[in-house]
């Protein structure tokens, strides 16, 4: 198949691998932690991009899938001593199921209405979990140290989670590319450009949008399990942090919505910037304001994001940047 030889895919994979392999070579735990955040953001941002960039629907509350996935996984690990792999799978399924149920209800809304309702969904889920005793209510769930034993103890478990997240980042790049090159992807982009015209051509908008929503929810759910497993505990305030959604939105916009490479570059660039800001005494308290300001600047001046801008400025690059 010719399309699998496309440099658009390989450049994205190469950059993802280059980012992820660095701490493996140096075997430094500190670097691993930094890059773990980047890889997690790549998974989250690229997933969000399927909805935001390909389909044109803005989901502010996307972190709800991360949080719910995390909770379901942690619950299974804590109460049933499930393996991390089973828990991660269950977290992904739970997130996908929530997207499916929500999709039927809220994907009829367009534009700002949809975006607002997604915030409401996240807040409602946080309030629900806060009062849901099996998930520990406001206190949340804490793992006992012994759950890391089967993976060779906490130190090895951290490396294992890192490898798993790295694998997910590679998977999400392939998935983004495969969706974009498919007939399904074409239907999403047609919806983004003009939903009514797409329907006149025969696209079934509610089916296509629901599938896009489900696809964009699953991997954030999986990565939620990995993140909280590594953390050792989960609580409502940490699981449903609205600003994490918004930061991921900034990453997608920064790198280039609707492109395969964009969210990868955006996640890397934004996390590096964030890392600099939070360690800098002057900026550390206004780090989120800077994210907001950055979003404003992107929307005003380079709405297509870095990769989009390059593609528009140098049409020849269209063949290599996908």
């Amino acid at each position: 198949m010719k399309k699998w030889l496309n440099p658009g895919l390989w450049i994205t994979l190469l950059i993802t691998v280059a980012i992820g392999i660095w701490p493996i070579i140096t075997q430094e735990a500190a670097k691993r932690e930094v890059i773990f955040t980047v890889l997690m953001a790549i998974v989250f941002a690229s997933s969000l991009n399927i909805l935001l960039g390909y389909t044109g629907y803005v989901s502010f509350g996307h972190v709800v899938f991360f949080g719910l996935g995390g909770y379901v996984g942690m619950y299974l690990i804590k109460e049933y001593e499930a393996s991390i792999w089973l828990a991660a799978l269950a977290g992904g399924i739970a997130a996908g199921l929530l997207a499916f149920l929500l999709g039927k209800a809220i994907l009829k809304l367009r534009g700002a209405y949809f975006a607002l309702v997604t915030i409401g969904v996240n807040e409602a889920m946080r309030a629900f979990v806060n009062n849901f005793q099996p998930f520990g209510g406001p206190i949340g769930l804490e793992l006992n140290f012994k759950v890391y034993k089967p993976y060779g103890g906490p130190a090895d478990a951290l490396w294992m989670v890192y490898y798993a997240t790295f694998a997910l980042a590679i998977l999400v790049a392939v998935l983004s590319y495969a969706v974009k090159q498919s007939k399904f992807g074409l239907s999403l982009m047609a919806i983004r450009e003009d939903e009514d015209a797409a329907e006149v051509m025969g696209v079934v908008p509610h089916n296509a949008k629901t599938w896009a929503f489900i696809l964009s929810a699953i991997l954030p759910g999986v990565v939620g399990v990995l993140f909280f497993f590594k953390n050792g505990n989960i609580e409502p305030a940490g699981a449903f942090r609205l600003h994490y959604s918004i930061e991921n939105l900034v990453m997608v916009m920064l790198g280039g919505q609707g492109t395969v490479l964009g969210p990868v570059l955006g996640a890397f660039g934004y996390q590096r910037l964030r890392g600099f800001l939070v360690t800098n005494p002057i900026f550390k308290n206004i780090q989120l304001s800077i994210a907001g300001g950055l979003l404003l600047l992107i929307v005003l001046f380079i709405p297509a994001g870095a990769v989009g801008w390059l593609r528009n400025r140098f049409p020849r690059l269209r063949r290599v940047l996908s």
């Binding site: 982009m189 047609a190 450009e193 003009d194 009514d196 797409a198 696209v203």
Partner: peptide, 14 residues
């Protein structure tokens, strides 16, 4: 009602 950000060919393919 062109699908603006898609190519002419992609529009017709749709």
């Amino acid at each position: 009602r062109p699908l603006n950000e898609l190519t002419v060919r992609e529009n017709v393919m749709a």
